[in-house]
Amino acid sequence: MTQVSEAPERVRPRGERSLRLARLVGAKIGGGLVSLFLVAVLGFLLFRVLPGDPARAMTRGAPVSAEQLAALRHRFGLDQPLWKQFLDFLVNLLHGDLGVSYTYSRPVAELIAERFWPTVLLTGTSTVIAVLLGLWMGTRAAWRHGGTFDRLSSSVALSLWSVPTFWLGLILLMALGVGVGPLPGLFPVSGMSAPDVPPGLLPRVLDTAHHLVLPCVTMVAVVYAQYLMVMRSSLLEEMGEDYLTTARAKGLREDLVRRRHAVPNALLPTVTLIFLHLGLVVAGAITVETVFSWPGLGLLTYEALRGPDLPLLQGTFIVLAGSVIVMNILADLLYHVLDPRVRGS
């Protein structure tokens, strides 16, 4: 009789697997570099077509002579042909030099580095809280879907999600920062630290945390709804799957069925969302940082736009776009680790 084989064996030696992984990582990073280059080109060109003379912007309307303007243009290389400017920009970019800010008269890279950590502190804290809160509530809502918790949490989340960030920020600022009527303000309304902080690490940390509360609450309130809704619908989809019946038939307790089988599968779609968001929140913090005068990248971008401060705008543009690209690569790679089905294909 003919040997009838069921399916070709699909076992790969370990060496081949790690080679495939290395190739994948290489491809992702290569793709990311191409995107970054395009971002640099776009960033350069975009801000050249903005209306307004940068040299005039630097003088802030003070009366200057034509010679002084020409000298300014020469100092910042604005009298060079466009291609030459672009080439200089690229070479400098490779050296980590993003030019000198017109308004601050300081290197852009230095300014960005200074403002980077406050933004990471704000967006990082609020994203972690929003993710945990959203996923937990989404799981609960889906598991008892149609119940009181589900209906209540979904509608609250949707209302908050639909509220404009600046509006919510202003309301919180007035209610909890300035104080309403006889109620005193509970939290500081602007900045990251008070001028009169006693020395020592602990008081400073507490002071910063105190300042962090309002902007953080604003960001979490607006963002967590997304995680809730995605987790809820993703888990609802998984809940009809047969493997959960298998798990129940095995005698697993209901909470184990959920924790061990349903949630890990339902989490997969949220991974992409979380990382896409981590990239975007750096930019998304512009409104919140402006409302609360949080000294981060968002506020810096806002200030640069008012100039317009071309080198600073270019710098923040590249950093914001770059963070989206980096997070995307990380999401792809993490997905690869988490989902064996993606690994196989």
Binding site: E241, D242, Y243, A249, K250, G251, H261, P264, N265, P340
Partner: peptide, 25 residues
């Protein structure tokens, strides 16, 4: 009941693709 499940009686489900958890070995 949970103790009886699988130790007294177990089930081979239809369509094994969906009856197995796709992300666990």
């Amino acid at each position: 009941l949970r103790a009886a499940r699988w130790s007294s009686a177990s089930v081979v489900f239809q369509g094994a693709m969906h009856a197995l958890n796709p992300v666990r070995s």
